[in-house]
Design a protein around this nucleic acid. Structure first.
Length: 322
DNA sequence: CATATTTGACCACA
DNA sequence: TGTGGTCAAATATG
């Protein structure tokens, strides 16, 4: 936060005490480091997923955290004027997600022009850090599974135009193992991040959470996964241990079992609301942020990054969109 | 009871 | 005219 303020105060790179040329070099160096960090995070993410595959909650948690780190890098790169892979605050390709195309959705009907679209393939279409509300589902011709339509929870409250389409891929298209893959099309970009925190009135009136769910406020119709039969405290403690252990192991280049992994997280996969259909909307990201939100803030990593960048979305960090 | 999801109908576009 | 996208009433859930 403090660091961010300093950056904002010197938007042209003119750091006090440095002449412009040196400032430019510094600017470039910072961009280089940020980009490098972004790439390393992607590698770490891949390694973590490999190491934690099948570890349920730990896998989801690690994924969530690393996505947030990656997202933070993206935002910082954007702020510094670099070209980030994602213009949106979120780094859309979650875990092993791959950006398939940009600028047009799959299929022949590119609905409307001028609306930015980003198509990704991912195994966790809901862990992108945003809260989505499902508003429709439709069977699409020549597809095995229905397409689900989601829009940002702040669609009304903040007029956020972001929507996304989730299409489960048929088994034969699945890449590795048994993992179910989804084609996720992000349509339009989030504007909810550019705005001030929801006014108390709105926050009290509606249950819509903070974008990343760090407030740990319980959500209506919140999906439940893992932690069956455990009270909140025990579950949190187990997840905390799992998270610490998992990330430590990943960072060390190997993985070992962590205490309580069996008892606390029988199955970390997001529950499929309806077999064969699209999973329920406000799922993984929400739960991950909710269940481990305190843990994350305790670690101070994602939290710090989040608050460092979240206060400055938009131009100059002060560009509040009405 | 409030809110989210489901689902059929409607609308717009190619 | 067929298909994809959205709306809104009905339903489900906590």
């Amino acid at each position: 936060m403090q660091t961010q303020s300093r950056l904002i105060m010197n938007p042209n790179g003119g750091v006090a005490g440095y002449e412009p040329a040196a400032a430019d070099e510094q600017h470039e160096a910072v961009l280089r480091e940020l980009t490098h960090g972004h790439q390393l995070t992607a590698h770490l993410q891949a390694e973590a997923l490999r190491a934690l595959r099948g570890q349920g909650q730990a896998e989801a948690t690690a994924t969530f955290i690393l996505q947030e780190v990656s997202r933070a890098f993206s935002v910082c790169i954007n702020i510094m004027g670099g070209s980030s892979p994602a213009a949106t605050p979120t780094t859309p390709p979650p875990d092993a997600a791959a950006v398939v195309a940009s600028g047009a959705a799959s299929g022949r009907r590119a609905r409307d022009d001028g609306v930015p679209r980003k198509v990704t393939v991912t195994s966790s279409p809901y862990s992108d850090g945003y809260q989505w509300r499902k508003y429709g589902q439709k069977r699409i011709m020549r597809t095995s599974f229905p397409r689900c339509y989601y829009r940002c929870c702040y669609h009304r409250e903040r007029s956020c135009p972001a929507t996304k389409l989730v299409q489960q891929q048929p088994p034969q298209q699945r890449g590795d193992g048994e993992q179910t893959m989804y084609t996720v099309t992000y349509v339009d970009e989030h504007t909810c991040h550019n705005m001030a925190p929801p006014e108390p009135e709105a926050a009290a009136r509606s249950s819509t959470p903070d974008p990343l769910g760090f407030s740990s406020g319980l959500q209506p119709r919140q999906q439940q996964w893992g932690g069956a039969g455990l009270d909140r405290g025990s579950k949190d403690e187990l997840e905390r241990q799992a998270l610490v252990s998992s990330l430590a192991c990943v960072l060390q280049g190997h993985h070992q079992s962590y205490p309580g992994s069996g008892a606390g997280t029988p199955d970390g996969s997001p529950s499929q609301a309806r077999a064969g259909d699209c999973p329920s909307a406000s799922g993984l990201s929400l739960d991950a942020s909710d269940d481990v939100g305190l843990d994350v803030t305790d670690y101070g990593v994602t939290d710090a990054l989040y608050f460092a960048v979240s206060s400055s979305y938009g131009p100059g960090g002060d560009g509040m969109i009405p």
